[in-house]
């Protein structure tokens, strides 16, 4: 066997294939090979409340990322009768947008190297089920978003298997902008390229309330929507003013435009993906090991 061909055939091919059969193909035959992999459409079947909330918070970024003009939120659906075509169209538009967000979000999760510091893999030891949630089963990872799996390499940050819905979208947005604001002492880098700059409409608080509560009368809060140009923001301000009821006419005077920022498509998608983690549960498989 100390001839060239012997080495190529026995060692090179034989030992390599044996290892692949025993540690790659065999587990596949036991488990994944016996159950169909969940497709992206199945994963995006139930559009989460958190995803719909993204549209309310960052409507302009959402429109730029997914289009989805027909996707209506609860407020917009008020008065639309059951069975109306608009409801069906809305549901379909939501699912299409969600599907795109999950795929793009996963790609961003990979490209930004999130999986080097966060695991998606709860072990049956070290009290991990107390800390993170139920121990991982293979069925959970038998889906299109785990190709290749994102089990991770190191836990500088916590496991994210069940991270979805644990925290609000606002928390995550603040955390991406500056992790130390919401999580003092963390070593996670900031991800400021998840945000886009623009102009937003803001509203100062009522001076009466300011004087009664001792707040600075210049305190203001944003109206959702970050626009690329000042002109678009002005149109938006006109719309907000027009929608303000007569008995609150004073409110119109306190609207103004300022530079601001909101999540861009990358930020919205990765947030949608993180809020999805752990929310999808597979059907139990008969006879799985």
């Amino acid at each position: 066997m100390d001839r060239f061909l012997g080495i190529v055939l026995v060692a090179g091919l034989g030992c390599f294939v044996l290892a692949f059969v025993l540690s790659g193909l065999y587990p596949w035959m036991l488990n994944e090979g016996s159950a169909p992999e969940a497709t992206l459409d199945e994963l995006a079947e139930d559009v989460s409340v958190e995803f719909k909330d993204l549209k309310e918070r960052w409507p302009e970024g959402f429109r730029q990322a997914y289009g989805a003009e027909e996707a209506l939120n609860l407020q917009e659906l008020v008065g639309v009768p059951e069975g109306d075509a608009r409801r069906t169209a809305s549901d379909a538009a939501w699912r299409t947008a969600y599907r795109k967000a999950l795929q793009d979000g996963r790609d961003a999760y990979v490209g930004e190297g999130c999986w080097h510091c966060h695991s998606q893999y709860v072990r049956p030891v070290a009290n991990e089920d107390t800390r993170f949630g139920p121990v991982s089963r293979w069925e959970q990872d038998n889906n299109a978003l785990q190709r290749p799996v994102l089990w991770g390499t190191r836990r500088v940050g916590p496991d994210l298997t069940y991270e979805g819905t644990l925290r609000s979208n606002d928390w995550h947005a603040a955390h991406f902008w500056d992790p130390r604001v919401v999580s003092p002492g963390t070593v996670m880098p900031a991800y400021r390229w998840f945000f886009r700059d623009g102009f937003q409409v803001r509203r100062r608080i009522d001076p009466d309330i300011a004087s009664r509560t001792g707040l600075d009368p210049q305190t203001s809060y944003p109206v959702p929507g970050v626009y690329d140009t000042r002109a678009e923001a002005e149109q938006a301000m006109a719309r907000v003013a027009a929608e303000t009821p007569e008995n609150l006419a004073g409110e119109r005077e306190r609207l103004f435009i300022e530079e601001g920022r909101g999540l861009n498509d990358r930020g919205l998608s990765i947030l949608a993906y993180i809020q999805w983690l752990g929310t999808w549960q597979p059907q139990p498989v008969e006879g799985g090991a």
Binding site: G12, Q146, P148, V149
Partner: peptide, 26 residues
């Protein structure tokens, strides 16, 4: 050659989940 082709194609295109992870480990 064999290792590189196996690791960069199978977990990405065919083998999902845990068996894909086994192949990545391999």
């Amino acid at each position: 050659i064999l290792t590189y082709v196996m690791g960069n194609t199978l977990p990405e295109w065919t083998m999902p989940g845990a068996s894909g992870a086994a192949t990545v480990g391999l």
